[in-house]
Design a protein around this nucleic acid. Structure first.
Lengths: 241, 241
DNA sequence: CGAACTATTGACACCCCTCAAGACCCGTGG
DNA sequence: CCACGGGTCTTGAGGGGTGTCAATAGTTCG
């Protein structure tokens, strides 16, 4: 039942397994696992949560909303992501997290965070790392939404999703799972659903991508990166310290 | 010369002064101070820096750029902000930081970060907090750029700037310094300079705001928040742990 | 087989961008 | 003191990218 193999709290050296001491420590920190169905809320904007989660498997979205219903998804959630850092460290969540597929989460009690920081500088580093990485992804998304055309945004977003899927070992050279709806993409890119759909159609017609039955097919990743005006840098896996 | 009074690395309890031990520790961590002129680069996207900075005074912007020159400012930089967390924890900066006014920065050597995390869980918490806060600000900005109209974006951005100025003790009830150019605002909001200017003019005509000679005047902050479709929540100052 | 959700497509409107020119502001040097 | 120059702000005209509305088709699941 207790499984730490996919826990993001070991970014200090992503290739290093936990030492026996660390493993024992982490198992003690872990409170259990949580399974949620597809399309369920995990954490809600404005709420405080006594728990902090890491994603063992499944996909989701982080999003923020305006009262009148407008929604912005700020990032896509992948296995290995940390959820609830904000609620752990501030008073409340500043964004919501919802599952897109069924997910299973690793549960950590927030009140033990202090012990973690005190007793394990490696884990402290990991959490700083996780925060910095999230900030970096948000910045990239902000650049897209603020300064790229619809076509570029879509290309960049699909490239990123493809890249992150590959990084967690999903899909193969040209294929990747694509669990999100067009509406989620539109909300992530600051576009309307209709325009997202039309732009996607055009990209399909051009043979740039294929997307059906929750699978994304990209023959030429570099071309996609070029269309998206992004430099195709793979995920940095190995922090320095 | 060594002054830690405005250092963000004490968010654990923002009202608590450093203990003598902590003070000694931080002074030892600090490598010196750096003064930069207005309009100078501090840290560049893609570069690694051996230093981490905190802002003692002055203002700046964080920004990302596309090769063809398009620029997105991701956040405004205020005194008390931490700069270079990404370079400290990942391999390189994912965004640039430039000074808007003259700034003086507190310099910390990156290679001593590990000691900091190991010896001071309070500081570790502070850094996690700083990262989470930055993420929260970016998320708010992303929501604006993706889902708000030009008018709303401007109102929200000015409200936020006003609010952050007040939080650091600048300005008074209705006045606040406004060091940035319209171009910076436009780049932060994903708008063109021209449209930013026209929308601002309209807001001035309506008496919603005044802005001249680097000073922002807002008589009715709540009205501004309403126009921006934001809930006027003040900065959270007191994290829980 | 129906219900609910998701994707697709067309028509039309408008918000915002681009281009372009001029005004203002301010430091520098003759 | 005034001319000059660069940066910033302002204003107008016109075009295009994207949003909204609305209706239909396709898909999934009970």
């Amino acid at each position: 039942m207790i499984d730490c193999s996919n826990c993001p709290l070991r970014k200090h050296d992503v290739f290093a397994a936990f030492t026996p001491t660390e493993e024992r420590f982490m198992k003690e920190f872990k409170a259990g696992e949580l399974k949620v169905d597809a399309g369920s809320p995990v954490l809600s904007e404005g709420a405080a949560s006594p728990y902090l989660y890491s994603v063992l498997n499944g996909f989701g979205v982080r999003s923020k909303a305006i009262e009148d219903g407008r929604r912005q998804v700020t990032n896509f959630v992948f296995p290995g992501d940390l959820i609830g850092l904000q609620t752990a460290v501030m008073n409340a969540m500043e964004h919501s997290v919802d599952s897109t597929t069924a997910m299973t989460l690793c549960v950590f009690p927030r009140e033990r965070l202090w012990d973690l920081l005190k007793n394990s500088p490696e884990r402290a580093f990991d959490m700083v790392w996780a925060g910095a990485r999230e900030e970096s992804l948000l910045g990239e998304n902000l650049l897209s939404v603020g300064r790229r055309t619809a076509r570029e945004r879509l290309a960049a977003a699909l490239w990123n999703i493809f890249s992150r899927m590959r990084a967690i070992g999903e899909g193969d050279r040209a294929h990747a799972p694509m669990p999100w709806r067009q509406q989620d993409l539109a909300d992530a890119l600051g576009l309307s659903l209709v325009h997202t759909n039309k732009t996607l159609s055009r990209m399909k017609d051009e043979g740039l991508i294929q997307w059906s039955s929750s699978t994304l097919v990209v023959e030429d990743l570099d071309q996609l990166a070029a269309v998206g005006s992004i430099e195709a840098t793979p995920e940095r896996k190995r922090p320095l310290i």
